[in-house]
Structures are given as structure tokens and as C-alpha cells.
Amino acid sequence: MNIAVCVKHIPDPNLPGELDGQRLKREGVQGTLDPGDEFGVETALQLKQAHEGEVTLVSMGPPQALEGIRRGLSMGADKGVLVSDDSLQGADALITARVLAAAIKRTDFDLVIAGVESTDGYTGTMPSTLAELLGVPQLTFTNAIEATGDALKVHRQTVDGYQVVECSLPALITVTAGVNEPRYASFKGIMAAKKKPVEELSVADLGLSADDVKVAQNIVDISQAEERKAGEVIEDDGSGAAKIADYLKEAKVI
């Protein structure tokens, strides 16, 4: 089973975000592989173990996104593809999907894996747009995956529980953080990752036109949200519970 995993290199989510004009600041910002993507890489590695094949990491981003790919390679993926192009700055979910679709179509894939949503942009629609462009079905929000050689059976999370969804390959799945426990990269893995092949491509290499990557949404205004003010913060000296009860009474809850 050959698997393409979409990975994204993002500004470290533990650091406060910054804007650079109308875009999320990425230059000179400490970056990391999106923590949500580690679950996708782990899923791919487990499927490869059971069904053989090759795991390819596919990413779109500035040149430093190579670090994210290296991280996935050090976990055990086989190779990477990075699409980097100045014309992709500010790309929306549709453009991202077009680029990833073009890159993935060059590989011989049976399955595409992505996170449910990115941790920095959290649009949450890129994978289904990608599935449509690839002409494959999608199994989204999965937290349990069973695969045979040519079909999948997954648990798809919903608001009130889950659905069991089946489909044949090729297909695309999105994985939630509940699906597995991503492995740590070993020292050996980190060393090996440096030698694994990563193909770097431009928009033109993919055969996409300027129109295909033309941004159709622009920030026109930025303002600070009205902030909720902090109220009273007190140390619990044994009267904390009574204090909460008083508050609930005041709010006419009890």
C-alpha cells in the first residue's frame, strides 16, 4: 500500500502568533511539524508495516518547511516532496489542495492521509477539496482504522458518537489525535532522515498555471477583539466552594 501523507510546517503553536501585514508571520519564526500531522505519519507507518509499500510525505510551504518533512522522515517515512514557490504566499485551502493534488498525482498512491485541520489555519476543508481533485472518496475524522489490502473500514467521529464507514482504495482519510500515539524519532532515525530523498518542486514543475494559484480571498481589515475582562481571582482557603455557590445563587442558577 503506497501512502502519501500531507504534512505542514507551522509556526510553533506554543509561541504567541504574529501577523506580518495580512499574513501569519512565518519568516524568522520558530517552526515545527504540525503536531496534528504526526498522527497521520504514524498511521501511515503502521499501515506500511502491515501492508508494505512506501510512505511519501507531501508538503507545501516556504523552503524551511523542509524541516517538517525531515521530522516525518526521521519517524520512518521513506521520502518527501516539497512544493515551494513565491507565488504560493497567502494561498487559501483551494490553492493548497490544487498544489498537493498535483504533487500527489505524480506518485503512485493507494491512500492519502491528512490531519483533520491544521493547527495554525484550521480551515478543515483542505482534505475534502483534495479528495475531490484526486477523484477519490474521503473518510474524515477517523479515530480507528482497519485496512485490508484494497479496502478500509474506519470509525468516523460525529457529534453524538461515531459511524463505521467503509470504502475501497484509493481513498483519502483524515485522522484525529485519538487515532494513535505517534512514535518518537530515534537518533538513528534522525541520522537516516538526512539521507532520504526529498524532491523540491515549483508551481511550474507541477504544470499549474498562474490562474490555478491566484488568491481569491484577502484580509481587508484587522482589529483587536473586545476582550473579556478578568474578574476576581482568589486563593482557595477552604471557602472556594461556598464562594462558587454564592456566585451561582447570584446568577439565579440555584
Binding site: 489542495a97 484550521y122 478543515g124 476543508t125 477539496t129 479528495a131 481533485l133 481569491a216 480571498q217
Partner: peptide, 14 residues
């Protein structure tokens, strides 16, 4: 997400 691919529409989330 799928409709966006078909119509070529930009999509804004959240």
C-alpha cells in the same frame, strides 16, 4: 470542501 474543488470557489472557514 468538495464543492469548492468543483466550482473553483474560494472558501472561508470559521
Amino acid at each position: 470542501g468538495r464543492l469548492s474543488a468543483r466550482t473553483g470557489s474560494t472558501l472561508m472557514s470559521n
